[in-house]
């Protein structure tokens, strides 16, 4: 870990005025970890734990505004979230451990970085270390020919196959959340689908935030009337492990036909993976196993396995089918 300046911001304005090269620190559950591994080497940390962004409020349009500093535990157990956005509560509770969830924040979780073992090696991207285009563009990708069982099959490029690890983000993708930010250039709203980036040729660029820009809120739209939502996470062990495949579904069935469907997947994509293909395959169709399987096939149509993670294609399909079944039951 390299030496850094630590400052505590008492207001959003003060936080935004921090020196360049500094990073915001909220719960620290990813950032401190990565600093210890020499993956993150900020010259300064701006502690934003005092910012008044720790509330969950109902919006005039019937939606929900979640402060960036709301802890994962608080959000998961929020009565409104449990009632109207069950998929989000379930996703949050399937992630990490109670201790981590008590610290981790909504804003921080949006920025959670990959668990690729090569990315997390202290020397990755340095001469003699494992190649990692996320760490050092152009240094290569050791995971392509290495330990890639946990890696992505969707949204990959020949530069990077790292999986986005968040459960929360998968639920938010299905809920069509929007992200509110504030930065040196003012406030803006970013659609969830535009927030995370696929690696392409620039895997080191992971999201739409500009330097010094701060996530302030995540807004959820008004709950879809009559819809049910479910998150399902599949993994090797029963707790404290990242997804091999997960699925978030918001669905509404009327007269046996699917009238509303949002499908997102985790554990398989380089970003929280919204599947418009699956949704298209579901709309207006009978809510039955055949439809679900078609949707799952559509969701994984472009999947590209690498070595050890080939099984994820079939596992993700089964995950989608089961989640659809649960959400339409």
């Amino acid at each position: 870990m390299q030496t850094f300046q630590y400052t505590k911001a008492a207001s959003i304005d003060k936080a935004l005025g921090a020196a360049s090269g500094a990073k915001f620190i909220a719960g620290g559950t990813t950032l401190v970890d990565l600093m210890k591994l020499s993956v993150e080497k900020p010259s300064g940390l701006v502690d934003i734990n005092l910012l008044p962004l720790d509330k969950v409020e109902t919006l005039p349009n019937g939606g929900l505004r979640i402060g960036a500093m709301v802890r994962n535990s608080d959000l998961a157990w929020n009565a409104e979230v449990q009632k109207n956005y069950a998929v989000l509560s379930q996703a949050l509770l399937s992630g990490a451990s109670p201790q981590l969830r008590n610290m981790a924040t909504t804003g921080g979780n949006l920025l959670q970085r990959t668990r690729c073992v090569y990315f997390r090696e202290p020397s990755a991207g340095t001469p003699g270390g494992y190649g990692c285009n996320k760490r050092t563009p152009g240094s290569g990708c050791a995971a392509m020919e290495g330990f890639n069982r946990m890696h992505a099959v969707l949204g990959t490029s020949d530069k990077c196959i790292a999986t986005h690890p968040s459960d929360m983000c998968v639920a938010m993708a299905a809920l069509e959340a929007t992200i509110q930010t504030e930065g040196p250039k003012g406030k803006r709203t970013i659609a969830f689908a535009d927030f995370h980036k696929v690696p392409g040729d620039t895997p080191h660029l992971e999201n739409a935030l500009e330097p010094g820009e701060l996530v302030t809120y995540v807004d959820l739209p008004k709950p879809v009337e009559g819809a049910k939502s479910v998150y399902l996470k599949l993994r090797d062990r029963a707790s404290y492990e990242f997804a091999l495949a997960s699925c978030a579904v918001v669905a509404k069935v009327e007269g046996g036909r699917i009238r509303y469907a949002r499908v997102a997947m985790g554990g398989v994509g380089t970003k929280p993976w919204r599947s418009h293909e699956a949704e298209a395959a579901l709309m207006g169709k009978a809510a039955n196993a055949e439809t679900f399987r078609h949707a799952a096939e559509a969701a994984l149509k472009d999947a590209k396995p690498h070595g050890e993670n080939a099984f994820k294609v079939e596992l993700a399909k089964r995950c989608v089918v089961r989640t659809l079944k649960m959400a339409t039951a």
Binding site: R115, V117, G146, M150, R237, A238, S239, F242
Partner: peptide, 16 residues
Amino acid sequence: PINGNLADYLVATCAD
């Protein structure tokens, strides 16, 4: 040993 940590080397948890 590339999974040399307790996140990537899986031991049984209480839930298992």
